[in-house]
Amino acid sequence: MHLTVEHTTTYSFESPRARVVQSHRMTPAASLCQQVARWEVTCDGAHFGADFTDGAGDHITTMTLAGPVTQLAIHVSGAVRTTDTAGVLRGHKEVVAPDVYLRKTRTTAPGVGLAKLADRLAEQDPRTLEAAHEMTNLVADTVVYTPGATDAQITAAEVVDLGHGVCQDQTQVLIAIARMLGVPARYVTGYLFSDAQGNAHEASHAWAELYVPDLGWVGFDATNRCCPDERYIRLGSGMDALDAAPIRGISLGGGAEMLDISVNVAAQQ
């Protein structure tokens, strides 16, 4: 599939900021699942630098803007040719040991509700494809996808008690359970093409990757109860939502900050 992405993130500041610094994880890496034909991240007046590829194979760039800044818009424009590999991440260059993704983070730390869910899967070998699918479905059943705001800081344990959430919440719950069962798991961000029937939920999306011996990293999307296919573009990964965030930034100054996001993912004929 040939997908094009137009994605604009606009920040407006109530009072001008003296300086803005952001770390971007917004450029897809090439693999057997995706070939990048064209990709560009731009922002008027910004200075891009300090770019590198991290151990997980993600391209990271630093963006700085000297103040006063009242508004800034980051445009992502690109085209990617995708291939369906049934969710298996093939040909992606990385050097991180899978077991590193067994670490706890604040948002994926164990909890009572999470432990109960994990117990339901304790009978079988968790490090299989089947078990991973079961985990995914269990999360989709337990955490009902509900568009709208949950707090971005919410932890997986809190989400399970709440019983609903967005793709970030479902993904972190899936990761937390997998890790409790000894399966390395990580948080992945990217884009999702919604077809004409509107089957998919979010154009700017998040899902999990679980490590299955012999296969390697395999994507699982609890929101859509499936493995990523040719409709998915993979941007980057991390230990949890915060760690994998496409934009991590800080701006110097007070006052409210307004965020406006527009994403368009289209399939080219």
Binding site: V21, A50, F52, D54, T61, T62, T64, G249, I250
Partner: peptide, 10 residues
């Protein structure tokens, strides 16, 4: 902010 990126990019 950004120090680690500068470090990691040499």
């Amino acid at each position: 902010p950004g120090l680690m990126n500068v470090y990691r990019s040499g």
